[in-house]
């Protein structure tokens, strides 16, 4: 059975792209969230194997969402999606419980590597 994924990003563009990369690699995209709040809600409802999480989102940023999700489920596997120059935020996200990160612009191979590491 393929792994289930929840994609959290406020940009449809990014959700589509990440979704395409993961779908082509055989993942099952079970949900999308546009805000941190949605991400937390949907995590609780969908319990996906993997979450991809944008850092900058309206209504609760990605880092606070990581805190909420890992408080609910310490085993949550969250992959941060970050831009260049966000080192401090990524460090904060890792400290908050995110498992790994990828840096935009996304290369499919790097995304999949990070996903494999997180799911390993």
């Amino acid at each position: 059975m393929s792994h289930t994924v929840l994609i959290c990003d406020d940009a449809i563009f990014m959700r589509t792209m990440v979704g395409d990369i993961l779908q082509q690699a055989g993942f099952d995209i079970v949900g999308e969230a546009e805000t941190g709040l949605q991400a937390v809600e949907k995590y609780k409802q969908l319990r996906p194997d993997l979450v991809t999480m944008d850092i900058v989102m309206p209504d609760m940023g990605g880092i606070d969402a990581v805190r909420e999700i890992t408080r609910f489920d310490p085993q949550a596997k969250i992959l941060m999606c970050s831009a260049m120059g966000q080192q401090a935020l990524v460090v904060e996200a890792i400290q908050a419980g995110a498992r790994d990160f990828v840096v935009k612009p996304f290369q499919p191979s790097r995304v999949l590597e990070a996903v494999q590491r997180v799911l390993a």
């Binding site: 406020d10 990014m14 309206p58 260049m84 935009k104 612009p105």
Partner: peptide, 16 residues
Amino acid sequence: ALFRAVHTIKGMSATM
């Protein structure tokens, strides 16, 4: 709000 919007555009455009 400005930061969020600009940041999103930055990420998308770099990807493109």
